[in-house]
Design a protein around this nucleic acid. Structure first.
Lengths: 367, 367
DNA sequence: AGACTCCCCGGAAACGTTTACAGCTATCGG
DNA sequence: CCGATAGCTGTAAACGTTTCCGGGGAGTCT
């Protein structure tokens, strides 16, 4: 008889062969029934029964080898603790799910080798496509992206000539929006708490800040600029350092986590927000609305960027021959209590911080 | 000659056959060289050269089919926007990475069918193992967990008899710690903002709250209990509803997101925290420290639970015959400014909230 | 009644890799 | 000088699935 293969593999799990043998049909018939295509009523019954009896569950790896797809899409981000990526992820999830695929997320933790390793591993067919949002980009990285056997879409800035689908924003302009707003509401000693300058967003924001001040004719004062990393604790520490040597009347922060750290440092130092110091964050995450006072923040359209990236990816999965595309999402400023315009009132020289004068509005005002 | 197969598959990507043909050796030799085992110097040179020329990259799916492992581990959680899962994820990541595997995260968004579908899909060999933290558990769910072809560890409560590795905490006791602390600092009108009662943690916390009040001889008042879901906005809304009909002097919140919502609602309503109302959250996430005033919170040892779950998983991947194990991590209370003891001072009948009297300490006090 | 269509079935190939096995050559020891 | 041994190589099987293809049976139309 045609029993050419082991029916029970070493680990004891049933395969389609097990089911076929038990049902007394060929593996082809068994496979067809299990996939719901074809089969006589009698065959269907026998196969279903056999499958249930042995507890058959198909091996997705083998199926993928055959079908050349896995139904999985991956998202690689720096730090999943940053709410901006959570929002991006939600938007991507929605699009990806609508195509019947599932989204997997990997946090690279800023270790660039980790991200490259992930690309090399996952992209080699474990997933049908990837969205990555690198904050540092090396040449090695870039070639890994270009050589990926699987479609890749990048969220974030990328060298102009890289032939990779790419959704970006203009965070340089985003910083300018924040500075314009602060200047317009009478602030002049504007500080800046940034992330690392060797990251793409860090560099762009530094550039944007300096350009905006210059444009307004405000002299650059390096005492008012401080750098940490893109996290809460670093933002707080950086702000404490800044306050120890300078006296800003406003702070632009490179993201909302930093802004929350800055807010905390300011309140702990007895500064009133926004009366003494206005604070503007960036990314406009849920966190900005969760603070008291609520934080003004520059929206970089993270959800929108995620949504578009996912759409680009799905299109490319469907047709790999598309030319590389580049989309841009404009930033916008959302003004909330933390940078509300206030009459310049003399700040009490000492004593605890006064009560906030503005109540949180349910939504901010988009500039 | 032995050219039995297509060397260039339809999608144009080179396979080991391509490389072997180009190097003029057999696929076995090519594979050996590419894996760094054996090969004469001459063969090694030829294969390396050919691989580089055609840009060969191995197909991980095919490799996995052969090796029966993928080097991937998945974590499935409800809501990746909840910082408690971020902390858990970080702990798991560390352990998993030390075994040379990579961690993938999937957010189920509370859709239980989604979670089951994920199990059915991912667990079918796409990953070497899974850690899941379900908040709702149905029978269907349970059988999917038990039948998983791949090792699964559950973080959270599970039926006592389920033969599944399981790391849990005692959130019932956690709520008791919060209530004890509030009672000890003179609070009597203790409110409770919970998540959905049809979830495992929601039910346990409700139970724990009622039991703790009863133990202290405080009469239960349903006016002081409100339910939303485990998110910030719901926590804020639930607290607003509660404040509209009752006048608590303390709030226990079922997690930190709810607690932040509650804090926001309280401040917006002009209540001072902690003078008028003490607030205690749960999970002791980074968020608790990010607030002003910093939030007291019951730690449920999320990082520790994640670490242990990852260890259990790795052990089970190594040896599937281990008996099911269950571990428990005790809760502990971290007291910070939001529930600091204050002298019972008459609250001004009207007017804006006063300044907080306590400054955030760098760390709380563990009770 | 015969030809044609339709459906079902089983054999076998294919997806791309690793690896057991056997054959070959060259070297070394006796 | 011959047998044993070591190292390399190629053939082929295997992982578990889907799918192409050809054969056969039943039903329908002419």
């Amino acid at each position: 008889m045609g029993r050419k293969r082991l029916q029970e593999p070493a680990d004891g799990r049933p395969t389609v062969h097990t089911v076929a043998a038990r049902a007394g049909v060929s593996i082809a018939s068994a496979s067809r029934v299990l996939n719901g295509v074809g089969g006589s009523p009698e065959t269907i019954r026998k196969v279903r029964e056999a499958a249930a009896e042995v507890g058959y569950v198909p091996n997705a790896i083998a199926r993928s080898l055959q079908s050349q797809r896995t139904g999985l899409v991956a998202l690689a981000v720096e730090d999943i603790g940053n709410p901006v990526y959570v929002e991006m992820m939600r938007a991507i999830e929605a699009v990806v799910a609508s195509s019947g695929r599932q989204l997997l997320v990997h946090a690279t933790g800023g270790r660039i080798d980790n991200e490259t390793a992930l690309l090399r591993r996952l992209a080699n067919r474990y997933v049908d496509g990837m969205i990555v949002s690198p904050i540092r980009v090396t040449d090695d990285h870039l070639t890994a992206l270009v050589d990926s056997p699987v479609p890749v879409v990048v969220v974030g800035q990328l060298g102009a000539d890289a032939p990779i689908d790419n959704v970006r924003t203009d965070s340089r302009h985003g910083v300018a929006l924040a500075v314009d707003h602060l200047v317009a509401t009478g602030r002049r000693r504007i500080g800046f708490v940034n992330g690392p300058l060797d990251t793409v967003p860090g560099a762009a924001r530094d550039d944007g800040f300096r350009a905006a001040l210059t444009r307004h004719g405000i002299p650059l004062d390096d005492e008012l600029i401080e750098v940490g990393d893109f996290q809460y604790a670093a933002g707080r520490a950086a702000t404490e350092r800044l306050l120890a040597r300078a006296d800003p009347d406003a702070l632009v922060c490179a993201n909302d986590l930093i802004a929350v750290g800055a807010l905390h440092a300011l309140l702990a130092a007895g500064r009133r927000v926004p009366q003494d110091v206005a604070v503007v964050g960036m990314d406009d995450t849920e966190l900005a609305r969760m603070m008291f006072p609520q934080l003004s923040s520059v929206s970089l359209g993270s959800a929108e960027r995620g949504r578009r990236a996912a759409e680009l990816l799905l299109q490319r999965i469907a047709d790999a021959t598309l030319p590389p595309r580049r989309e841009q999402v404009p930033p916008s400023l959302v003004v909330r209590a933390s940078s509300a315009a206030t009459l310049p009132a003399p700040r009490p020289a000492t004593g605890p911080a006064g009560p906030p004068t503005t109540h949180p509005s349910s939504e901010g005002v988009t500039a």
